[in-house]
Design a protein around this nucleic acid. Sequence first.
DNA 1: TTTACTGCAAAATTTTTGCATTAAC
DNA 2: GTTAATGCAAAAATTTTGCAGTAAA
Lengths: 143, 143
Amino acid sequence: MKRTKKKAFREFIAQKGLKSTRQRDIILDAFLSSDRHMSIEELYLKLRAKHPNIGYATVYRTLKLFAESGIAREIQFGDGQTRYEHVAEGEHHDHLVCTHCGTIIEFENETIEKLQDEVAQSHDFIIETHKLELYGICGKCRK
Amino acid sequence: MKRTKKKAFREFIAQKGLKSTRQRDIILDAFLSSDRHMSIEELYLKLRAKHPNIGYATVYRTLKLFAESGIAREIQFGDGQTRYEHVAEGEHHDHLVCTHCGTIIEFENETIEKLQDEVAQSHDFIIETHKLELYGICGKCRK
DNA sequence: TTTACTGCAAAATTTTTGCATTAAC
DNA sequence: GTTAATGCAAAAATTTTGCAGTAAA
């Protein structure tokens, strides 16, 4: 899977006539080997430890590029930080967010997706993407 | 309904020992008589026409207060602008957003809500709120 | 009077851009 | 050699705060 994304990104770069650089490789590795919901800042800080000369702007621009290439997706949990998550081909998942400890659980539910399509259809919409986030308290935090 | 919200806000103010001011009344009227998804800036600009001396910070702080009082809710569509929408007591709705013209349609679907609860339960979560947004192209824009 | 609110301007955040230099092709 | 990417610093855009003056209770 990591392999696939690297390959996908390499192809995207090539097809667009862009350049493959050391920084992009480093950032991609860091992104792929991380938590699935990193903010730009978190990734930047993580990188800075080993690669102190990589600039914030590069991380910023590279993440945008990941999103454009389809291997990442921008998400907003409304805490004022843009995050990027991994996108596996064809896969889609939603989020369960613990408002107490911040844990994020991913889930999928086909029935919900089907109902969403129905809702959209009834309003003459064709869905491109969707976002479903459930906020609540996880079991651990309730104890 | 407008009446109810005004009343609810008045009660909130009183109960908290806060003050009822001319500005808060003006902002509340503008908010209630507006589009259901105003950003702080949009509301500020709308107000400025008739009330050029109301400051941005006041609008900002007042909207926060509306949210705290329960008559409004903060939403983020990921376009870098915090919006506020009306909250009707006990009611909850989700959004269908046209990525082309920006139209926002609200909808409710009990079955989806029920399934969400099930998902949460299976992960030992108790849901407090949720957010469901469907992004796509509306009928008009497809023509 | 006392306490909270307003309006302004300034600070803090976060995102985005310009540009000279460097690295990939 | 060309063209695109980097890194820095600076600009934009948003959100948030401090504070002296003002208005509500």
